[in-house]
Design a protein around this nucleic acid. Sequence first.
DNA 1: TTGACTTCGTGTTCATAATACACTTACAGT
DNA 2: ACTGTAAGTGTATTATGAACACGAAGTCAA
Lengths: 229, 229
Amino acid sequence: MPHTYEYPRAALTVDCVVFGFDEAELKVLLIQRGLAPFKGKWALPGGFVRVDETLDEAARRELAEETGLQNVFLEQLYTFGSVDRDPRERVVSVAYYSLVKLAEHPAAGASDASDAGWFPVATPPKLAFDHADILETAVQRLRGKVRYEPIGFELLPAKFTLSQLQHLYEAVLQGELDKRNFRKKFLATGLLVPLKEQLRTGANRPAQLFKFDTKKYQALKKRGFSFDI
Amino acid sequence: MPHTYEYPRAALTVDCVVFGFDEAELKVLLIQRGLAPFKGKWALPGGFVRVDETLDEAARRELAEETGLQNVFLEQLYTFGSVDRDPRERVVSVAYYSLVKLAEHPAAGASDASDAGWFPVATPPKLAFDHADILETAVQRLRGKVRYEPIGFELLPAKFTLSQLQHLYEAVLQGELDKRNFRKKFLATGLLVPLKEQLRTGANRPAQLFKFDTKKYQALKKRGFSFDI
DNA sequence: TTGACTTCGTGTTCATAATACACTTACAGT
DNA sequence: ACTGTAAGTGTATTATGAACACGAAGTCAA
């Protein structure tokens, strides 16, 4: 059933940059395109926005369809509207970025996409369309955001050690951090709850496990809370 | 000449939040709608994106057509995609915000819009569509941005006094700032160039005029420059 | 069981930046 | 020359960020 308009219209899509962290480096979830254009190339998960769904809904739907991910942190990033970013026709894409706990989502492929996989953000494969630009924009946004909002917890398991948290920050911010200062500052926020468990990882002293105090953070945020790592 | 597609498509628009500063408070430029829906209501300048122009180009074009503004600071804000934000049909709008020197643009109305005017950001009139949401989002963005990038200079005349600059920051951040500390910090950045002129404003001591050192700022920004007022 | 190895965990000092705070100066008008 | 108004200026205190080294707890192998 065709649809007709007085003026030509751009197609509208959403694309999602899904970040994960694997204890050592920051990764991004890509899918291999099953259809032309760029068939066989790696790309960000995404697809067309339906007229009866919001942009957020479209992003969540595509994420679920193409990667199986649900109930994840998802936030609008930027809208990309170069005239020639899609070789077929004019396509404007609203990009989102998402943070997921990598351990819980090893790399499930799904229907639309022939395959999916995690790639290092630092050395991604060649990407379809302008997805390299989108990825770069998302990385910059993540770097900015992680400094004043504790979104890093979305990337870690529910129980984590201070070393894991520090390694995450070092991966995102690309630099070494002083262990004592890092722990001091983070513990001072009062957002880390020490658990009665420890994590044994081999021939060394076991590490204290913590969880993130989400409720306390929500309360602090409402009062206008500043955070700076 | 009609255009037909296999699936229904949303219309795509841009809307611009244009900020100005009049020595006392922050203002926003609105136009009175000449056409339904919301005919006669105040709204943000904006309009439909053409298929052969980028989003930035569309924003600049609409700004020029509806307000006469050209060569202004303009940056993408957020994309609004609620299903019912336009009563006619599905319309997705990419919002931009702009900073202009109010003195140079007293309030020129133009073709599409029956009238244009500056309104206090704190007490705007009832706005068409979801433009109140867009305005609110833009104000929050401006507040965030002004703290770590010296974008305030886009709102001031080329020559300004430190008091004017401080009043601008006070208006944006909604709070009083200490005069000595403010001057100390800002002068310490080295981004203010004292001129050989003074500004006489009445029965009091004249104020030193400054200009902003754009080139020095660009250079500092490239090197990764942090700024915090 | 002892020694080697690895990661965890902890305090203090110093330098820098943020804050609080009050009076004099220059001008216009009467 | 007196008054009113906004501009301009310095110091002392406090809080924050940065630098820095070693003992503790565990595993493994000789």
